[in-house]
Amino acid sequence: MVSAIVALALLAAVFGLALGYASIRFRVEGDPLVDQIDHILPQTQCGQCGFAGCRPYATAIAAGEADINQCPPGGEDGVVKLAELLGVEPKPINPDNGVAKTEPTVAVIDENVCIGCTKCIQACPVDAILGAAQQMHTVIAAECTGCELCIEPCPVDCIDMRPVGATARTWVWPLPGDEREAEERQVA
């Protein structure tokens, strides 16, 4: 009887210590869920979700303050991934937040029209526009997320969104079924 109690007490103490140590040693800083959501979001920082960037939106989703279907750049795939992560049903993108783009685009500044006002530089959430006051501006295409936030501030409307064409390097082999579907669509 005594030995049993002692043994159990010892076990409890050992496990308690082990758990206590683990909770300190392997403590996770911050909210890993926000990070996980943030990694699914496309990082365009476009604000179409109604939040000031991808991370605030991720925080809002994690806190249950925002729905998972407010990110048009992430598209249906993004919603599906978020739904998987959060264990909820996927749903179509909320049309209030905008429409998913069919292909990636990049901002292009018409250098002849640009007056060098720097407004687009201030609007760009990823510092992808290069230029100085009274100097021509240009977009670093590789860094542009296609968020379109620079379009509105431009006083002379010299910024266009252009599709990023596939190159031999970025081209994706079509699925054989896709070809058939495409042909069928053409026939129809």
């Binding site: 365009t44 992808a128 970025t170």
Partner: peptide, 19 residues
């Protein structure tokens, strides 16, 4: 392509945070 996009998103996140 997905890996490329992932890299690009990570870069965008980094740039945004730096900004």
């Amino acid at each position: 392509t997905q890996q490329r996009e992932k890299r690009k998103a990570d870069a965008a996140r980094e740039r945004h945070e730096a900004r």
